[in-house]
Each structure stands twice: as structure tokens, then as C-alpha cells.
Amino acid sequence: MEHVKGLLAKVGIDPERLEMFNLSAAMGPRWAEMCNEFTEKIRGLGPSPIWLATYRLKRNIKE
């Protein structure tokens, strides 16, 4: 995981966008909580640079 984070950082993607969680099969509520937490974190970081690049490209083509 650390290695892949390093790879992402190399190409300008915030390594914070990748995370590892540990939980057991009995942890349903924790799963929901985790999903929400992570979604909020990504919302804070904004769209990924790759997504933005393709978005801009598409928009330029349309215009």
C-alpha cells in the first residue's frame, strides 16, 4: 500500500486518496461509518486530477 501511495505521489495524485481499513465481518456499522468518513475526505480533496483533466478535455471538445 505504501509503495502504491508512493507511485501515485510520483504522478501528482495525492496519496491520501488511497486508504486501507481493517474490519471484521461483524462490523456492519463500522463499514457504513467508514464509507461516510472516506467520502467526506475525498469531497474535501476534490476531484482527482485525472478526472479533471478528462473533464476539461471533454468540455473543450464540446465548445
Binding site: L7, K10, V11, G12, I13, P49, I50, A53, T54
Partner: peptide
Amino acid sequence: EILASLLRMRAAQEG
């Protein structure tokens, strides 16, 4: 494969 993927991501960002 990994290197190709990283280069594609970089290329996408650089346009």
C-alpha cells in the same frame, strides 16, 4: 504495465 499506467496518468494531467 505499472510504468505505462503511471505515464498515462501523467500524460492525462499534462494534456
